[in-house]
Computed example of a mutant assay.
Amino acid sequence: MSKVSIMIADDHCLMRQGLKQILELDDELVVIGQASDGNEAIKKGIEKAPDVILLDINMPKINGIEALRRLKESGIKSKIIILTIHDDKEYLEETIKIGADGYVLKDADSDTLVTAIKEVNDGKIYIQQSLTTLLIKGYKTEDEYNENLKKESLTKREFDVIKLIAEGLNNREIGERLCISEKTVKNHVSNIFKKLNVTDRIQAAIFAFKNNIKRI
């Protein structure tokens, strides 16, 4: 099995070297590049096309949020995890809106980071558990009564679909898991969005987290 290739973008050399040593203790991971500022992160990210990029927010020349935006606009297929000291809701929401695949704090343990890397590499969205409540606060509905009405409006199959959306699966993967066509999944997703009054999969996933809709 090929290893998951990683690029680390952080302006602190010791941080980059320390992360490299920690990550490469796992036989499934390999660090193929490092960047010390936002410009270098964009340039090397595009050139090396790693499976996963670990991107700090506080970097010289171009900050991590702008680097994330430009990397996404470039069309690279690399998954991008924000690895930062900031446990601020605005940073979290902004980076997810731009297209970050994960968000992990620098004080997380190594197992959390390794798990995040492997999950986003598999196509899932990873938000460190301690940050989930922060994100939920940004999507509060008017009251609990309306929230319950929305939840009760979902059919059993729509419950199955939203559980898998919350796991980060795309329509094709959901169809394979539930043994239904991708077109049928797309119709279910559209109905879920309408019933919950949300506009994207992140908001649907947050609804699932907030309302304790468990994984299948």
Results as ranks from 00 to 15, higher is better:
Lys44Leu: 15
Glu28Ile: 00
Leu68Gly: 03
Asp88Cys: 08
Arg177Ser: 10
Leu135Phe: 10
Ala41Ser: 13
Glu90Arg: 13
Leu196Trp: 05
Thr95Trp: 05
Gly138Lys: 11
Ala9Phe: 09
Thr133Phe: 05
Tyr145Pro: 00
Asp87Glu: 13
Glu73Lys: 15
Asn148Leu: 14
Met59Glu: 04
Asp143Arg: 11
Lys151Arg: 15
Phe209Gly: 02
Glu182Thr: 15
Ala100Cys: 11
Val30Arg: 13
Asp26Trp: 09
Gln34Leu: 15
Ile42Glu: 00
Asp143Ala: 05
Arg215Pro: 03
Leu25Ser: 13
Ser153Thr: 05
Ile46Val: 15
Leu29Ser: 07
Gly38Cys: 04
Asp88Asn: 15
Ser36Lys: 14
Lys183Asn: 14
Met59Asn: 06
Tyr145Val: 12
Ile202Met: 13
Ala205Asn: 11
Leu113Met: 11
Lys77Ser: 14
Asp87Ala: 15
Cys13Val: 13
Lys44Gln: 14
Asn212Asp: 13
Gly168Glu: 03
Ile80Ala: 06
Cys179Lys: 14
Leu68Asn: 02
Phe159Gly: 00
Tyr91His: 15
Glu119Arg: 15
Thr141Ala: 09
Ile8His: 02
Phe193Arg: 11
Lys163Leu: 00
Asp143Thr: 13
Leu154His: 02
Ile46Cys: 06
Glu66Ile: 11
Thr115Glu: 14
Lys214Thr: 10
Glu142Arg: 12
Asn121Thr: 08
Asp160Gly: 06
Thr155Glu: 07
Leu68Glu: 10
Ile62Glu: 05
Lys195Thr: 09
Ile192Ala: 03
Asp101Ala: 08
Asn187His: 10
Tyr139Thr: 00
Tyr103Pro: 11
Arg157Cys: 00
Glu94Gly: 00
Ile46Leu: 12
Ile202His: 11
Gly102Pro: 00
Ser181Gln: 09
Lys163Ser: 15
Gln34Thr: 12
Leu25Phe: 11
Ser110Cys: 07
His86Asp: 08
Ala67Val: 05
Gly175Ile: 06
Ile202Asn: 08
Val4Leu: 12
Met59Lys: 04
Lys210Asn: 13
Ala204Asn: 09
Asp10Gly: 04
Ser78His: 05
Arg70Cys: 01
Thr184Ser: 12
Asp11Glu: 12
Lys44Ser: 11
Lys183Gly: 12
Leu83Thr: 01
Gln129Leu: 06
Met59Cys: 10
Ala41Ile: 06
Gly123Ile: 07
Ile117Gln: 02
Leu135Lys: 04
Leu134Gly: 08
Asn170Val: 09
Glu90Asn: 14
Ala208His: 06
Thr141Tyr: 12
Leu196Ser: 09
Asp51Tyr: 10
Arg201Val: 12
Thr115Lys: 14
Gly33Leu: 07
Arg16Tyr: 03
Lys72Pro: 11
Leu29Arg: 02
Gly102Ser: 08
Glu94Thr: 15
Phe209Asn: 07
Ile57His: 03
Gly18Ile: 12
Leu55Tyr: 03
Asp37Arg: 02
Phe193Ser: 06
Lys150Asp: 08
Asp109Pro: 06
Tyr145Cys: 01
Asp10Gln: 07
Asn170Met: 10
Leu23Glu: 03
Lys137Cys: 03
Glu119Tyr: 10
Ala116Phe: 02
Leu29Gly: 08
Ser36Arg: 09
Asp107Gly: 04
Gln17Trp: 08
Lys186Trp: 04
Lys210Ile: 02
Gln34Pro: 01
